[in-house]
């Protein structure tokens, strides 16, 4: 059992597939969520999976360096900034229109 488990230590393909799955789920959320906040949450999911991807590549391509981790830190920081601005916009939008249902936000059509 232990041998089996040790022999099936996750390689880069498994790690990358995991991050890609998280990304795909986030993408699905971005495309289907009706609430703007929900979309933002899904975007966070995607950003997180991207950060994970960086760390995975760092680990499997250049284990001695830490550039991937630094990039992940940047991603987290940018995500924080994005959430701040996004949430502010939603709050303003909600005040202005009374809803943040993106299906009703089709003024681009007119």
């Amino acid at each position: 059992m232990l041998e089996f488990l040790a022999a099936h230590k996750p390689g880069h393909v498994e790690w990358l597939l995991l991050s890609a799955t998280l990304f795909a789920i986030g993408l699905y959320g971005v495309l289907t969520r009706r609430n703007a906040v929900g979309i933002l949450i899904s975007v966070e999911l995607m950003l997180n999976s991207a950060a994970l991807n960086f760390v995975v590549f760092n680990r499997f391509v250049a284990p001695a360096a830490c550039d991937g981790q630094i990039t992940a830190i940047f991603v987290i920081a940018v995500a924080a900034a994005e959430v701040v601005v996004g949430m502010a916009i939603f709050v303003a939008l909600f005040r202005h229109r009374g809803t943040i249902d993106v299906n009703r936000m089709n003024t681009m059509k007119d």
Binding site: A80, V84, A88, A92
Partner: peptide, 10 residues
């Protein structure tokens, strides 16, 4: 900038 912008917008 994000903090200031967030305050201004919200």
């Amino acid at each position: 900038a994000a903090v200031i912008g967030g305050i201004a917008v919200a």
